[in-house]
Design a binder for these strands. Structure first.
Lengths: 149, 149
DNA sequence: ATATAAATGCAATAGTATTGCATTTATGAT
DNA sequence: ATCATAAATGCAATACTATTGCATTTATAT
């Protein structure tokens, strides 16, 4: 459910068009790679996979642009490294609707985007929240199966 | 309310005793500095303040031990840098009860520990959450006052 | 007072991310 | 299709965050 490949539904060229970004082969590759799985992928993993095709710096720049445009969202893991996943279609440059819950497995370190909606939380007087990030830390589906074997 | 100095209620030497840690002047200084404010302080800020007194590496090691022991809790900010705040008294080595909500100001970058309790969120089948981190991003009390002036 | 284990400081190194600049590429106008 | 132009890329250098190994210093239990 969280793990399904969703590359069928992602059209990199179209996404680039929608956000008036030039479609270079590097930008297309990055989207293809991230779209392979709804589980978020870390910058180091991306670099390992794409390092021969795309320069480190270019990769960073592409990831930043995609985040700015609301194409990807960025989740920090417990080590402070950036992880990326495709945003739901409702995200835009103005506002990231990534108010869902992330699950960061402390065993395999994978980050899942859960289909759980975060309950509304009321802020104290004077504090205005624009976005909300929630991450649960624990053992994921796959790892709990492996452990119990 | 979130901002009050709480150094009256923090006794570094006692905290160290409770966790059977040797009380060195470096460890005491770190606790003193962090206890000055309930707003979390980042590693770089701490290093700037304590860099003349304490070696970088020692500071990292002290922060790691304090986190392991449940004395401090660590909050990652949007840049992936570690921020530290004193844990509530109920935290222990076994379990961090830091299920409260953090507020990360996108203007001044300060991280507040809010007195808001996170509603229970139920995990999907197979996922077991041990801890839960929620961070709201937006404009804090102080910054919204400044802006409105 | 002293032995011992632990903590510290220093040097080196690893990992993550950014900046500046020359070269290459995508795209709109011709 | 060609070309001019602005934008994207690649490369080198650099900054920032964090960790490891080892010699020296320090806390504390005897």
């Amino acid at each position: 459910m969280q793990n399904q490949s969703n590359n069928m539904t992602i059209d990199p060229v179209n996404i680039l068009k929608e956000h008036s970004l030039k479609h270079t082969k590097q930008r297309i590759r990055v989207l293809e790679e991230i779209a392979l799985d709804t589980v978020a992928i870390s910058q180091p993993e991306l670099e390992k996979k794409l390092g021969k095709e795309i320069d480190r710096v270019t990769l960073y720049r592409i990831l930043n642009i995609y985040e700015d445009k609301g194409i990807l969202h960025r989740i920090m893991d417990m080590n402070g490294t950036a992880n990326y996943a495709i945003c739901s279609s409702s995200c835009s440059e103005d506002h990231h609707h990534d108010e869902h819950v992330h699950f960061n497995c402390t065993n395999c370190t994978k980050i899942y985007c859960l289909d759980v909606v975060l309950p509304q939380i009321k802020m104290p007087q004077g504090f205005t929240a624009a976005t909300m990030h929630t991450t649960a830390y624990g053992i994921c589906e796959k790892c709990s199966v492996m452990v119990s074997k």
